[in-house]
């Protein structure tokens, strides 16, 4: 997987976006024991604990395999993430209630 440009390690990219005025909060990621991807990428993912599991501002749920993807930066509308556990690319979008949601990109 080395050299992949799609890893969640590089998550949070918003290609073509105008420079953001409000700086993003950054996060130090710790290993949450997710062992379904190669070792060096494990900190970018964690298991979802179910409907009561509240996601942090740097986290998004993969709609395909229900794994939580974690970014080193706060996520915003237009960001793209890659779920290495199921090889799915997602885009972050603002939902109707203003909450961030994910859309799969094929």
């Amino acid at each position: 997987m080395s050299g992949s440009s799609h890893a969640a390690a590089e998550a949070g990219d918003s290609p073509g976006k105008i420079k953001e005025t409000k700086p993003r909060r950054r996060y130090e990621l710790d290993d949450r024991g997710f062992d379904e991807v190669p070792r060096k990428y494990r900190k970018y993912y964690r298991k979802w604990e179910g409907p009561d599991d509240e996601l942090a501002p740097n986290e998004a749920l993969c709609p395909v395999c229900k794994i939580v993807m974690r970014s080193v930066r706060e996520l915003r509308d237009g960001d793209q993430l890659y779920c290495m556990a199921c090889m799915t690319r997602v885009r972050i979008v603002s939902g109707e209630n203003g909450r961030l949601e994910t859309r799969v990109t094929y």
Binding site: M1, D35, P38, R39, M84, M87, Y106
Partner: peptide, 23 residues
Amino acid sequence: MTNFLDAYSIQYWLESCPQGYLE
């Protein structure tokens, strides 16, 4: 086809599966 499998390889499978959760 899309290139979603560009990042997939037998090496990736080895590191994730036999050397990951099945270790």
